[in-house]
Amino acid sequence: MIGLDVGSTTAKMVKITDGEVIFRITGTHNWKDLIRGIKDDEIISTGYFKNSVPHKATLTEITAARYGVKHYFPYADVIVDIGGQDTKVIDIRKNNFVINDKCSAGTGAFLEFVANYFKIELKDLGLLHSRAKRIPDINNTCGVFAISEMISQLVAGFSKEEVIAGMHYAFARRISFMIPEGETIVLIGGTVKNEGMVSALRDILQKKVLIPREPQIINALGALKYYS
């Protein structure tokens, strides 16, 4: 049995062998590579395309996230799943969730704009952030206008590294508005591999922030755990 999470930008496959979590990640368009040799009735699917791929059963990303996170952190209060196209915040204690999928400012797409502007790889944003000496205030809550504000800060004399750090703080502030009261916050999703963004979020939240070793596969793991 495998858990298959086919999201808007990446596809993830998880199986558990001898108690060990084994996974593969690829681009969404290559999702078929993940299920070669696996029968349809051995697949529990989740993610935006859960109904479009072969499956025995499906599960929403919201429920999958709860089960996946529980595997690593049974006492988490809140899950923040920052994906490429949306952000989901799940309040485990109150059995509640909110999703931002109307505005790019709190999603991975926002940081892609930033990386594209500087013509750098998305994965390099965190390293550049760590080199910032000052952090400029970027207050705009709209992704598009935040880019304009970012350019203004560059013109005003802030370095590329500092402006990237400022953008991480603007992003993290946006996410923090969605997060309810809770002691332990677990971050999942591909975007939380960005250490700069995570550092900004930790600074703003001032709470215990936990990240699984591989945050991108949690929903695929949760889908598998739910049905096994």
């Binding site: 599960l59 929403t60 990303e61 919201i62 429920t63 059995n95 969730f97 999703i99």
Partner: peptide
């Protein structure tokens, strides 16, 4: 629909 489905699962 995603929200409705997740609510039902809840």
């Amino acid at each position: 629909k995603l929200r409705l489905e997740a609510f039902r699962e809840m």
